[in-house]
Amino acid sequence: MSTATSRSTPPTGLSRRHRLAERGIDSQLLLLVPALVFVLGLFIYPFLYGLGLSFQPTNGGGAFADYQRFFTDAFQRDTIWKTLRLAIPAALFNVLASVPIAYRMRGRFRGKRLITTLLVVPITLGTVLTAEGLLNFLGPAGWFNRTLQAIGLIDQPLRLINNYWGVFFSLVITGFPFAFLLILSYLSGIDPTLERAAATMGADWKARFRRITLPLLAPGLATTFCLTFVLAFSVFPSAILVGNPTGETRVISIAAYQAAYEQYDYPFASAIAMIMGAVELIVIAVVLVWRSRFYKGATGGKG
């Protein structure tokens, strides 16, 4: 087709417009302008500004002084580990817990809307309300501990808030609905007749899941993990409210907040933010490399 157009050379203006349109360049592209302005103004510019700022340390010492300072100070450096220790397990839990629930809920059945609504409600709550709830529910005198004590399972109340577990629960409550909704939509994109075909070929449900559903779902799992991981990695309010912000849940965003608004050292805060972004990118890159080993084409369903 392209040879045909190049051989016959009609008035050049027209043919050039056709050639451009064939590559998707036409006046409809103008519709992208507002979005482009928005992205440039609210994302690219602040990012580059922050990046530039991080190379201009307040106390001098070269462009990388703030990065050096972060990595030589164990108190700061450990925030990376502390945040990863929260975000990776929480994201993994959210993804893995969503799979069986979404798997059961693929089809149509009575009450599906209600159950989906109940599972998704936590999105609407916001972190602060969740934290309040957790403080009341899981606190030393909360219902959870009182119930366990009442049925004689424990003598002393379990410490479930103002430490690692408080933040972990909070991340699960806010992150699970996202993971669940995403995985549900990925799962319903897989043609259900594939599993039925596997069944007629003698595969029991375990084999069907392992050989058919899981490989087709893997790219969706990777994407979902990345999204919930990024959400969890930037945890801030719940790390303060239900965590132990001076100890085991002093996450990286707290370090950046303290640099910016307690020490008023914006360049250092920017450096921390850049490090935060770099760590996220590394984790995502690892996941995407893993994902690239799987089939990525159509899954036969409504997609």
Binding site: L194, T200, A298
Partner: peptide
């Protein structure tokens, strides 16, 4: 019996080939 224990072969209208 569940389908996997009947031992019948089936050809589906949309073929249902495993795409991966």
């Amino acid at each position: 019996l569940p389908p996997e224990r009947r031992g019948f072969g089936m050809v589906f209208q949309n073929y249902a080939l495993f795409p991966h």
